[in-house]
Simulated assay, not measured.
Amino acid sequence: MLERQGKWLLQLRDDVAGIVYPGTWALFGGHLEPGETAMEAVQRELLEEINWTSTQLEPWFVQSSPQRVAHFFRGSLGVPLTELTLLEGQDMVLASLAELRSGEVLSPKNAEIRPFAPSLQWAVTELLKQ
């Protein structure tokens, strides 16, 4: 979960059948490649998805379900949104805490309000505990 000036970076997943939680807001990230650590995976995924990475990410929490184990990281987004290149997904935004509490966010590109993927909701729940 990347934070910039009190807002958090979200990815609107593609509306593609067969992907996990299509058309919902989520965090940038993905799966581990064989032999890869969770930290290596998040760095690779950020580079693949927004052409940016950070050496200042910190492990945050792990959420397990019967389908997967999700590793969450936190850090600062050290650049403005305009300096990121969206390479995966259909939109990205910096969402306020009020928007995160609501469970849905407006997509500027699609002019639609979209809900959160469960993984983003887990992160928001952890964030609100602090």
Rank of each mutant, 00 (worst) to 15 (best):
L2I: 08
R4C: 02
K7H: 08
L9Y: 01
L10K: 06
Q11T: 08
Q11S: 12
Q11K: 14
Q11N: 13
L12R: 01
V16N: 10
V16Y: 08
G18Q: 08
G18W: 13
G18R: 07
G18T: 11
I19E: 08
V20Y: 15
T24E: 12
T24V: 05
W25N: 07
W25R: 07
A26G: 12
E33W: 10
E33Y: 08
P34N: 13
E36D: 01
E40D: 12
E40K: 11
E40M: 03
E40R: 04
V42D: 04
E45Y: 08
E45C: 11
L46R: 04
L47N: 14
E48F: 12
E48I: 10
N51R: 14
N51L: 14
N51P: 00
N51Y: 10
W52F: 13
S54D: 04
T55K: 09
L57H: 04
E58W: 06
P59Q: 12
F61N: 09
Q63A: 15
Q63I: 05
Q63R: 15
S65F: 14
P66C: 15
P66K: 15
H71Q: 09
F72D: 03
F72K: 03
L77P: 02
L77N: 06
L81C: 04
T82C: 06
T82D: 10
E83I: 13
T85Q: 14
T85E: 13
L86R: 08
G89T: 08
Q90H: 06
M92D: 02
M92E: 06
V93L: 06
A95M: 05
L97D: 06
A98I: 14
L100K: 03
S102M: 08
S107F: 03
S107R: 07
K109E: 05
N110A: 15
E112I: 13
I113Q: 00
R114N: 00
R114A: 04
R114C: 08
F116V: 07
P118I: 01
S119P: 02
Q121L: 08
Q121W: 12
Q121S: 13
Q121D: 10
W122Q: 11
W122V: 02
W122S: 11
L127G: 01
K129N: 10
Q130E: 14
Q130M: 10
